[in-house]
């Protein structure tokens, strides 16, 4: 196919008025784009302004939480669930049940997600304070979480059985 001729003036290549300075080209990768630097400087100025206020009371504790949250996530939580996930995939693969993977992984991960978010309530570590402040029983959350987990796994099992039955129907009967 023939390309359309590029005759429009807007498409013309810009003509360099002077040759590019070699030292500029050399320095560039070391410093980076000035626009990006300006943006980062503005960002750090605002973060610094808010940061000194954030750190005013207990600078060590807050810094520990701020940096610790990132480290704990990247170096503990991610490896932990990645390893758990790999163990599930491997174990089911070794057992010759690779098709089960998603049906175990999804309810387990969803249940784990609920535990992660509502851990203070589910673990009961705030139960007495919760009960006294809100006037609702504080020890119901573990039971509710287990129930939700059971429903998730049961739902997954039902879907799996339905899929197997559908697959069995679609497949012509094996002739022996």
């Amino acid at each position: 196919m023939k390309r359309p001729a590029m005759k429009l003036p807007a498409m013309k290549r810009p003509v360099l008025k002077r040759p590019l300075n070699r030292s500029v080209l050399m320095r560039r990768p070391v410093v980076g784009s000035p626009l990006q630097l300006l943006l980062l400087a503005c960002s750090f100025a605002l973060a610094g302004y808010a940061g000194v206020r954030l750190l005013a009371d207990d600078w060590f504790g807050v810094a520990l939480w701020f940096v610790g949250a990132a480290l704990l996530h990247d170096l503990v939580l991610v490896p932990l669930y990645a390893v758990a996930d790999r163990a599930v995939v491997r174990a089911l693969g070794a057992a010759g049940r690779r098709e089960w993977t998603m049906y175990v992984r999804v309810p387990a991960a969803l249940s784990g997600l609920l535990l992660l978010v509502w851990f203070p309530l589910i673990s009961g570590r705030v139960a007495s304070g919760y009960e006294s402040a809100i006037g609702l029983p504080g020890d119901v959350f573990l039971g509710r979480w287990l129930l939700v987990t059971a429903v998730l796994f049961a739902g997954s099992a039902v879907l799996f059985v339905l899929r197997l039955r559908r697959a069995a129907k679609e497949r012509p009967p094996v002739v022996h």
Binding site: R53, L54, A56, D57, D58, G61, V62, L64, W65, W118, P120, L121, R125, V126, G129, Y130, A133, I134
Partner: peptide, 13 residues
């Protein structure tokens, strides 16, 4: 969840 573990008052943090 009324779990005031964090280092300080919630509002400024």
């Amino acid at each position: 969840q009324l779990d005031y573990l964090f280092p300080g008052s919630f509002y400024p943090l």
